[in-house]
Amino acid sequence: MRRRGAIMLAGASMVAIACLITVAAIGGYRLNLTPSEPLGLWRIEALRRSAEIGDVVFVCPPATAMFEEARRRGYLRRGLCPGGFAPLIKTVAALPGQHVEVTDHVVIDRRSLAASVVRKTDGEGRPVTPYPGGIVPSGHLYLHSSFVSSYDSRYFGPVPDSGLLGLARPILTFDP
């Protein structure tokens, strides 16, 4: 009898957690479990203006073969964005018309971007191909994270701003 009660309690707890996650997602809350930004609870806040350099944003990556491969390698998680990706949380580093140069680090309009070392391999020793650089096209954003192993525009290049979900506002976060 105790075992059945424990199983029922565990089942009820799982249902309660699933409901909480669903309500949080509908309310614009997201749990960040990646080191690209502080870990914890974030909220998506509607952006009622154009994105600006320095904005921390949530963005859905485009459903492309490059992002599919990134998910296979474990750089991205599954989520509710088109293509089944989870939204990325990154800082806007460059806007349309700005020139991005990628060498061993990132240079935007002839200014070095802080904490932008470009790696040749990922954490498992697999080769990674950096974005070759160029002018950020109209309707796109160049995204960055100061976390050295972040999968960001250093590797995938600018992304369409049509995937922009909004500003990322920390609610309860911490740096490990």
Rank of each mutant, 00 (worst) to 15 (best):
G27I: 05
G27P: 08
G28E: 01
G28Q: 06
R30A: 14
R30C: 13
L31A: 10
L31T: 10
N32W: 05
T34G: 11
S36H: 07
E37G: 15
P38Q: 00
P38W: 02
G40N: 03
G40E: 04
L41Y: 04
R43N: 06
R43D: 11
R43Q: 14
E45H: 02
A46C: 01
A46F: 01
R48D: 12
R48H: 11
A51H: 06
A51F: 01
A51M: 03
E52V: 12
I53Q: 05
I53L: 03
I53Y: 00
G54T: 08
G54Q: 03
F58I: 08
F58Q: 08
C60G: 03
P62A: 08
P62N: 07
A63M: 09
A65K: 12
A65M: 10
M66D: 14
M66L: 14
M66H: 10
F67P: 01
E68H: 15
E68L: 15
E69H: 13
E69G: 13
E69R: 15
R71M: 13
R71A: 13
R71K: 15
R71P: 13
R72F: 14
R72A: 15
R73H: 07
R77L: 13
L80I: 15
P82C: 10
P82H: 13
P82Q: 15
P82S: 12
F85H: 09
A86G: 09
P87A: 08
P87T: 08
I89P: 04
K90Y: 09
V92A: 07
A93D: 07
A94R: 10
L95Y: 04
L95E: 02
P96I: 13
G97R: 10
Q98V: 09
H99Q: 15
V100A: 04
E101Y: 06
E101K: 14
E101W: 12
E101P: 04
V102M: 04
T103R: 13
T103I: 12
T103N: 10
D104V: 06
V107A: 08
V107E: 06
D109M: 06
R110P: 11
R111E: 14
R111Q: 15
S112H: 12
A115T: 00
A115F: 00
A115K: 01
V117A: 13
V117Q: 11
V118M: 01
V118I: 02
R119G: 11
T121A: 14
G123D: 03
E124N: 14
P127N: 05
P130S: 12
P130L: 11
P132I: 12
G133P: 09
G133S: 06
G133Q: 03
G134Q: 05
G134R: 00
G134L: 05
I135N: 01
S138F: 13
H140P: 05
H140Q: 09
Y142M: 06
H144S: 09
S145W: 04
S145C: 06
S145Y: 08
S146F: 01
S146D: 10
F147K: 05
F147S: 12
V148E: 15
S149I: 11
S150P: 01
S150K: 02
Y151T: 07
D152I: 01
D152L: 00
S153R: 07
S153V: 03
Y155K: 06
G157N: 00
P160K: 05
P160F: 05
D161H: 04
D161G: 01
D161N: 09
